[in-house]
């Protein structure tokens, strides 16, 4: 186990360095730089040069990369070229809003997906299963942008029940209800897609297990259907579910770019898009490295969970 962990840690480091290298050089090779934001804002070339010099952007790329890496090891993600503030600060400012949205959506998605997935597998081929399949097909294929706009039109415009943007009403005292009201639509959009996705995995996972001999054995023992389901089927179907959920965890951090845009949610996604479009190198680098780290960590977590759910899996 210990050597397994060390091995994984080394792998993680390699992945992180690789990701940062690729991002760093790709960003710098891509056309554009942070000064090309707006042609109406005419910059004096001399001032631009001085600006770059002050930020050491005039040094050779490998030197820039090296000092970025050294700073990173000290826990310093650098200063945003657009905001002129530490990247870490920019992230911590936006993360709560994003986690509120993505976390709630994940919970809601699982809340619906687990029972519906189980139901449609257990009732395979029935009317109910067909309805759930229809719903998941819609959920998977409806683009978030489209669904979001549709919901806004319906609930914010025509019915005027729910707000169309942001996470609270400005100018009134903050209240729990107010947050919930603002959360409903974006959470519906985000969780529809992922719930549909999870339902498919859960259903497929369960169906595979249901066909196994040991489930027949369990029934032949005279166990109640619920016992068969919860003790024998579910635990064996957990692995694919753990896989998809852990794969989606890193995206709790990056937020949902489209949905954040549609609902004007002040989160990470919008900021990441802006940072990328405006070539804010330190911000984009930080996001990529953090996401890579999260992906690796979540994979590790998933592997450890596999071993928990399935005694046949052992790590050395």
């Amino acid at each position: 186990m210990r050597s397994f962990l060390t091995k994984r840690m080394i792998q993680t480091l390699v992945v992180l360095v690789g990701v940062s290298l690729i991002t760093f050089f790709m960003m710098n090779l891509a056309p554009g730089d942070p000064f090309m934001m707006d042609p109406e804002m005419r910059m004096n070339p001399e001032a631009v040069a001085r600006w770059k010099e002050l930020r050491q952007l005039d040094r050779p790329l490998h030197e820039q990369y090296y000092s970025w890496l050294v700073n990173l090891l000290k826990g310093d993600f650098g200063i945003s070229l657009i905001h002129n503030r530490p990247v870490l600060e920019l992230i911590t400012e936006r993360l709560p809003a994003t986690l509120l949205l993505t976390g709630t959506s994940l919970l809601v998605a699982l809340l619906f997906a687990v029972p519906l997935g189980i139901l449609s597998a257990v009732k395979q081929g029935t009317f109910l299963d067909k309805w759930i399949s229809f719903f998941t097909l819609c959920g998977v294929s409806l683009p978030n942008f489209w669904l979001g706009m549709l919901l806004i039109l319906l609930f914010a415009y025509h019915l005027n029940w729910l707000p169309a943007s942001s996470l609270r009403t400005v100018g009134v005292a903050a209240s729990f209800y107010d947050y919930i009201k603002h959360l409903i639509l974006p959470v519906v959009v985000l969780s529809t897609g992922s719930a549909a996705y999870y339902i498919r995995y859960i259903r497929a996972g369960i169906l595979e297990v249901i066909g196994q001999d040991y489930i027949l054995t369990a029934r032949a023992k005279g166990l109640k259907e619920s016992t068969v389901l919860f003790r024998h089927i579910l635990r064996n179907s957990m692995i694919p579910v753990v896989t998809v959920v852990s794969l989606s965890l890193p995206f709790l951090f990056t937020g949902a770019m489209v949905t954040e845009y549609v609902f004007s949610w002040p989160g990470m996604g919008r900021w990441i898009i802006m940072a990328t479009l405006s070539r804010d190198y330190p911000s984009v680098l930080a996001v990529n490295v953090i996401v890579a780290a999260l992906v690796v960590l979540c994979n590790l977590g998933a592997d450890l969970l596999y071993a928990y759910f399935d005694p046949r899996i052992k790590y050395r």
């Binding site: 806004i152 169309a164 100018g171």
Partner: peptide
């Protein structure tokens, strides 16, 4: 007395909020 400068990237949402009086 007070001004809220609200950041709403979605143009349609801006419009709806204007119509709704927000």
């Amino acid at each position: 007395d007070e001004i809220y400068f609200r950041i709403i990237p979605n143009q349609e949402a801006q419009l709806i909020e204007l119509i709704n009086g927000d």
